[in-house]
Nucleic acid binder design. Structure first.
Lengths: 192, 192
DNA sequence: CCAGTTATGTAACTAGCGTTATATAATATA
DNA sequence: TATATTATATAACGCTAGTTACATAACTGG
């Protein structure tokens, strides 16, 4: 019904994603994508209504990646998995990470709000966290999430000591998690 | 030697800062500033070579503010002061905070690097931190700085529980600081 | 009071953006 | 094979930037 397709939707998203990954989401432009593909802007407009629809597609691609990272790091320990996935994302896609955090975007917010009750449930099953009230668990989780975010932001911005590797990041994260848990347990027992 | 000055350098920076504060640093434009002042762009170019020189001036203004906050919160306890100042900045200037953190800017980086040795020295004097090695103090400080950054990012992005006030922020910060210190001391004693 | 200086306004130039109108050519179907 | 379809290229339109050229008018030193 027409000539052969030279530039597919997937290629367009790929190119747009490359730009977003290196220059940030706001720097996606129709002309840059076209140049990257060696085409004009015409094929883009055949596949996408406008630039918003295209950036939406790129956002979905980004969410897929963060989902993939979470699966790749899956060990069954939800703290570890989320921490590792978040840190990998912050390090491997630091520009995008900054974009997402900075944009205060609804993807992340909704994701968080869905994950918190799940994590609390997981925590209830964890023998290491036995004996805590739900409120205590919530506070522990909040502290760990705050720390993890701070760590990810530092990693994305190169604010950590030069020789810090991924393993060091995980170590300091789990070390601090232990600090919080241990300390909470102590003050709990003391007040008894 | 010429007509009266109607638009001073200070006024220009003020207007630019207002725009930055509400719309972000990238949204400073010559025409917007002019409109805010009720002038043309001409007075701006008399006072600044180009838009970069102007945004530099705005950055300095922002640094002045963060400095002012630090002084206003000064109680002698460096943890408390930095935490409070950072949290106030994140809450009162959330757009700017996001710009600064996420831009990976050299101001912050240099500031951090200068502050760390100072804080370590202060920590050495703190009776609550007696008996720790310098390496232990460094780890404690790093953990607290990471947590504080995460907390500030959450505050700036409205990611914390709805009813969280400034006092709650300080409470969770100092609570976590205590967790870290207590836990570090325990594991230190255990290994003896 | 005159001349030079300069603060300001106006309008234009350039560049990059999203978008669209038009032309062209390749393909499938009838 | 002829025609309708459609993927692509080109170029233009309108918009918003930063920047600058030019005109105007106010002030000051002589």
């Amino acid at each position: 019904m027409g000539p052969k397709v030279k530039f597919t939707k997937a290629q367009i998203i790929d190119s747009a994603f490359e730009i977003a990954k290196t220059e940030g989401i706001d720097n996606i432009t129709m002309r840059k994508i076209a140049e990257k593909m060696g085409s004009s802007v015409a094929p883009i407009y055949v596949n996408f209504k406008d630039v918003n629809e295209l950036t939406e597609a790129v956002m979905e691609r980004i969410m897929d990646i963060s989902q993939r990272l979470l699966i790749e790091e899956s060990t069954g320990n939800p703290f570890h998995d989320m921490g590792m996935a978040s840190l990998r994302f912050a390090k491997e896609y630091s520009v995008l990470f900054r974009d997402l955090i900075m944009k205060n975007n609804s993807y992340m917010k909704g994701y968080d709000e869905k994950m918190i009750p799940v994590l609390i449930e997981e925590m209830k099953q964890d023998p290491e966290l036995e004996g805590f009230t739900v409120d205590e668990l919530k506070t522990i989780l909040l502290k760990i999430r705050i720390f993890q975010l701070g760590l990810s932001v530092m990693a994305a911005n190169g604010l950590l000591p030069k020789d810090y590797e991924k393993q060091d990041l995980m170590n300091i994260l789990s070390s601090t998690a232990n600090d919080v848990i241990l300390s909470t347990r102590l003050s709990k027992n003391q007040s008894k």
